[in-house]
Design a protein around this nucleic acid. Structure first.
Lengths: 120, 120
DNA sequence: TGCGGTACTCACCCGAAGGTGAGCACCCCC
DNA sequence: GGGGGTGCTCACCTTCGGGTGAGTACCGCA
């Protein structure tokens, strides 16, 4: 199953962090939630151009299981679900910041294209 | 091809860093080279229990292309090749350190098993 | 003389990650 | 009253990462 089955034996901390962060969209979800504080499902979908609903649900479930995001369901008539970062999610994001800096430098070094997310 | 074809458009720095670091053994290779400075192919293989030769070669080639490792071939009669980190490799490792710290904390939090590498 | 080591390459296979498209239960708005 | 939005689930399919095992050219050592 996709749910759980993680938490395998690790070689080192990197392994453990990677385990939680790998997945095409997870770091982006983390970022999106960090930026906006709280987002509804459809807002996240719109914020991550190209993500499929299935993957978004799946990643969110895994991240919830890993204690990174908080899922709050409002039992209202048009469904409403809000996602936000837990303290672990916030600290993971902080830990990713130096990596983001390195990646940014790499982008400039190799002159890769960048998809602007902040616009639109 | 596995070689190049990376450097696709990125959403953010994390993407770019992840692109370079994903691969089952890459972070371990980074770590191993950081610890030992310079390693021969067979030394790396022995240092990473479970890695297949194919994956080791493949990852090393990609990391060489990405400018993370330096490959020095000695044209001697029993082949001799030495791998070491470039400055970019070293700085990537530094950027990974906070992530490693987070992962370490997570390991302790969830009480996961850990494969000891420093022993043996 | 033949086995093991050195640093690989090549061909093949498997399973998981991720994408596609449909359906659902209920509502509001035009 | 039907089209669109809300948050999903399910089934199917493709792609790709990674593993397996063989082969290679040459050597040193027992």
């Amino acid at each position: 199953m996709a749910t759980s089955a993680r938490q395998g034996p690790y070689f080192c901390g990197i392994d453990a962090a990677m385990d939680v962060v790998t997945g095409k969209w997870k770091s982006l979800i983390l970022w999106e939630l960090q930026e906006h504080g709280t987002r509804r499902f459809a807002e996240l979908r719109r914020g991550l151009p190209g993500v499929s609903e299935k993957m978004l649900v799946q990643h969110l479930r895994e991240m919830e299981e890993d204690g990174l995001v908080d899922r709050k369901v409002y039992p209202v008539v048009p469904p409403k679900v809000e996602y936000s970062l837990t303290e672990h999610g916030v600290s993971l994001n902080a830990a990713l910041e130096s990596l983001a800096g390195w990646g940014q430098a790499r982008i400039e070094r190799i002159g890769a294209d960048k998809i602007s997310v902040e616009a639109a």
